[in-house]
Design a protein around this nucleic acid. Structure first.
Lengths: 369, 369
DNA sequence: CGATTCGATCGAATCGATTCGACGCATGTG
DNA sequence: CACATGCGTCGAATCGATTCGATCGAATCG
C-alpha cells in the first residue's frame, strides 16, 4: 500500500522521466507542479498520472533551490549545545515566534549550535549548508566566525543584540532602561542594599563575585546593559556573575549574596530562570519572599513549576521572535530594513515588596543550618 | 574593513569569476576549494588570492548540493509548536544528542514543527526544503502526511516509535517492560492502590479520567505501552490522561486522583515532567512524598528546579539521541540498518517508599489484592 | 476566406559547482 | 634520442528543475 511505484533500475525518477511518460516536454511538466503558468487540464492530469505511476515525489528541492535562488532554510545560531541553549525558556519562546513566521513563509528553521564560544573554527560544515538568512541569538559581541562566513556569502543576518557588525540588522530592546526601571521600583520600595546576579559575562566563566569593570568589558551586550541599568540606581550594588544562565547558577549566585555579612534586602537577577534559583536559595535559608527578600527577574517567560509570579521585565519573547521573523521576511523581500527596538513591559508580581524595617532586618539565620 | 570586494554589478560572484581572475579553468578553481584532487601550490594560492580580491565566499551550497546529491540537512519533525515540544526536557535532550552526532557529520538540524496534529495538509512548504534524512519524534502512529512526503521523495526516515511504516527505521525501548518494572517496584513496596497519569493519548485531549479501552485505541505507542506495563501489575489502577505532556497537566491530573474518594498510595506518571507536577499536587494537599504518597516518573531528565530525585526510568535521552544520529549516519552511508532497541535503567530516587500502614489510609482496600 | 489573436506547448539556455576522461609538459629510463 | 611515466590542468558533460522567447494550432473577426 505504501510502496507504489519503483525507484528501481537507474537512479531516482526525475521530472524528465515523468515528462517522457506523459508525452510532454519537461518544461510543461514543470509547469504542472509549479503552477507558474497555465496548463490545459487534460495535459496536467496526464502528467500527474504519470507522476503517480512512476512514484515521482515532486520536484527535487535541491535542483529547485539552485534555479530559484532560495533554499527555504533560515539558520538560527544558538549558543553552545542545544541542551544548554534550550534550558532557557526565553530562547525557546523566541524561536517559537520565529518559527511561526518563517513557517508561514514556507521556510524551515535550521538549528546551528555555535560551539566555538566566540573563537575558533566552526568547521567547514557550515559552508556546506544553504541558508537564505541567518539569525543570531544571544551571542558574544566579538567577531563571530560564523557571522563572517554568512556575510561573505551574502546571506542577510539578523541579530538580537549581537554580534554587531556592518549589515547586521538588530532586533533589540532598551535593556538598560528596562533594567533601570526594575531598580527604581526597588528603590521606591525602600530598598537600599541590593544584590545583582548577572547573566554570564564571558565564555566558560564560573559563578562568583565580579566587578563593574568586568561588566563593562563583557562581550555580551545584554548582560552589560542590564547591569549598567541597575548601577544607574544602585551604584554600589553587590555583583555576582552566574556561570550559566540557568536555575542552578542563580541558586548558587544568590547563595553568595545571602550568606555574605551584609545581606541585601533585594536581589535583581538578569533572567527569570536565575531569579527562580534566587528565590529557591532564599527559601532554603528560611527567608520569606518578599517579606525578607525581594527578587526581580527579566524576560517574562512562563515557568509553570515556579509557583510564584515574578516581578520582571516582560520582553514578550514570542512577539520578539515574530518580529525577528518579520525582519527576515522583509530582508528576503528586498525591502529596506533598519534596526528594530521592541517594547518591553514592567510586570509587578508577588516577589517584590517593601524593604523590611531595619529592625526586622537584624533577623539572622544560622548559616550552618 | 568588512566590505572588501564588490558584489556590485551583475549578480553574485561565482566560481567562474574567480577562475577567470586567477587565469585558470573553473574545474581547477573548484579543486582548490574542494581539495578532491591535488593542485599545485602556486596555482592554489593564485586562486585563493583571486577569491579574496573578489570577495568570494566559497562554493554556493545550493549548487554544491545539487551536484553532490546531499544537502547536509537532517529534518527533525517535532510535535506541534516548538514552544510545546521543547517544554519537555526529554525532547530537548534527545535533540541535543542527535545534533551532536549529525554536527560531527557536518550536517545541520532542521526543525519542522508538525502542526497538522495527525491529519490535514502540512502545506507545500515541506516539499520545497531539501533534507537528506528525516527524524520523527513523539508523533502519532497513524498515517503522517509529512512522513508520506519524505518517503515519496526517497528520504530515509528514522522514528522513535512512530509513525510506523514500511522503511521507517525505529529506535525504541521496551517501554512496556520498563513501565512494568516501575509498577513491580511499587508492588514490592506494598502499594496496592495505584493511580496512573498517562501522557496524552490523542490530539487535543483534555486532562481527565480515561479507560483502558481508550489507552488501547491511542495512536501514541509510548503512552499506550507504558500504560499497559502498569496494567500488567495493577490491572485496576485508576487512569487519568494528561491533556499535555507538561507540569501543569501532571498537577491537574494528580489532583483528580488525590481528591477522589479512594486516594491512591502511589502514582505512576508517564514522564518526569508530569511526575514533578504530581509531587507538587501532593505537597499542595499537605501530603508527604514518599511517606504518604509514592511517585514515579519516566525519562530520566534533569529538572534542576525540582529539588528531589525522582524514581524513574532513565531512558538516557542524550544517548538515545546519539543513537538516532548514528542510525541516520548509517542510513546515509548506505549500510543495512535494522530497528534498534535502546537500553533503559530503573533509577530509584527519594520519591518512592513503603506503602503507608493500612491504618494510616484505612479508606479502602483494592479488591484485586 | 484570409488575417489576427490568444492560449497551450516546446526547446534551449540557465542556475553554480563538481567530476571524469583527455591532454600537455617535464622528468626519468632504455 | 625515442618512449614510458606522472603530475597538473583543462573542457565538456552532468546534477534536476525553471524560465523565456518562439512556435503551432485553433478560434475570432472583418
Amino acid at each position: 500500500m505504501s510502496d507504489g511505484g519503483q525507484a528501481g533500475s537507474a537512479g531516482r525518477v526525475t521530472l524528465r522521466d515523468v515528462a517522457i511518460r506523459a508525452g510532454v516536454a519537461v518544461s510543461t511538466a514543470s509547469l504542472v507542479f509549479s503552477g507558474n503558468r497555465p496548463v490545459a487540464t487534460s495535459t496536467a492530469d496526464r502528467v500527474r498520472a504519470a507522476a503517480v505511476e512512476l512514484g515521482y515525489g515532486g520536484p527535487d528541492p535541491m535542483a529547485s533551490s539552485l534555479r530559484y535562488g532560495r533554499s527555504g532554510v533560515i539558520a538560527a545560531v544558538v549558543e553552545r549545545r542545544i541542551l544548554h541553549a534550550f534550558r532557557d525558556p526565553y530562547v525557546v519562546s523566541v524561536l517559537d515566534g520565529l518559527s511561526q513566521v518563517i513557517g508561514e513563509m514556507g521556510c524551515g528553521l535550521l538549528l546551528l549550535p555555535d560551539a566555538t564560544e566566540g573563537h575558533g573554527d566552526p568547521g567547514p560544515q557550515v559552508s556546506r549548508i544553504a541558508a537564505d538568512a541567518a539569525v543570531f541569538m544571544l551571542c558574544g559581541d566579538e567577531n563571530n566566525e560564523l557571522a563572517t562566513q554568512f556575510a561573505a556569502r551574502g546571506v542577510p543576518i539578523v541579530g538580537t543584540g549581537a554580534p554587531r557588525g556592518a549589515g547586521i540588522v538588530q532586533v533589540t530592546a532598551d535593556e538598560r532602561a528596562a533594567s533601570r526601571s526594575l531598580a527604581e521600583l526597588l528603590r521606591d520600595l525602600g530598598h537600599r542594599k541590593v544584590g545583582h546576579v548577572t547573566m554570564p559575562l564571558r565564555w566558560g566563566g564560573a559563578t562568583g563575585a565580579c566587578t563593574i569593570a568586568q561588566v563593562r568589558a563583557s562581550h555580551f551586550p545584554d548582560s552589560r546593559d542590564r547591569a549598567l541599568g541597575v548601577r544607574d540606581v544602585f551604584p554600589t550594588a553587590a555583583l555576582v556573575e552566574a556561570g550559566e544562565p540557568d536555575f542552578d547558577s542563580g541558586h548558587a549566585a544568590a547563595g553568595l549574596l545571602l550568606d555574605a555579612r551584609d545581606r541585601p534586602t533585594a536581589i535583581v537577577a538578569q533572567s527569570d530562570l536565575l531569579a527562580a534559583g534566587v528565590v529557591q536559595a532564599a527559601v532554603d535559608r528560611g527567608l520569606r519572599v518578599p517579606e525578607d527578600l525581594s527578587v526581580t527577574g527579566y524576560d517574562g517567560v512562563q515557568l509553570p513549576w515556579f509557583g510564584r509570579s515574578l516581578t520582571t521585565i516582560d520582553q514578550h519573547p514570542l512577539d520578539k521572535g515574530r518580529t525577528v521573523g518579520e525582519t527576515v521576511r522583509a530582508l528576503l523581500a528586498g525591502e529596506d530594513v533598519s534596526d528594530v527596538t521592541v517594547p518591553v513591559t514592567l510586570r509587578v508580581g508577588d516577589t517584590t515588596g517593601p524593604a523590611p524595617a531595619s529592625g526586622a532586618h537584624r533577623l539572622t539565620v544560622d548559616p550552618a543550618d
